[in-house]
């Protein structure tokens, strides 16, 4: 697990309010099935933008972008 993935998992663990432990998820686990709500996904987005000092462009603000650790990373 590299730094980026570790950071993503930490943020999901902190803000995603998932039923499961974020560290135990597969890269491709469906985060929405794991309990990510649309409200929590906004907080995950905000925390990711802050951590990586970037802004998700509007076209990426889609459910699909935030559906798993792998898709966030891409």
């Amino acid at each position: 697990m590299d730094q980026t993935e570790l950071a993503i998992r930490t943020i999901i663990g902190q803000f995603g309010r998932l039923a499961a432990d974020a560290a135990s998820l597969d890269d491709s686990s469906d985060l929405y099935e794991a309990g990510l709500t649309s409200h929590a996904s906004v907080n995950v987005m905000l925390a990711l933008e802050d951590e990586f000092d970037l802004e998700f462009p509007e076209r990426m603000l889609r459910r699909a972008t935030f559906s798993s650790i792998a898709t966030i990373r891409d």
Binding site: L46, E55, E58
Partner: peptide
């Protein structure tokens, strides 16, 4: 409240 949360990340 829902719109308010979305506006925190909405860019267009």
């Amino acid at each position: 409240a829902h719109t308010a949360a979305l506006l925190c990340v909405y860019k267009d």
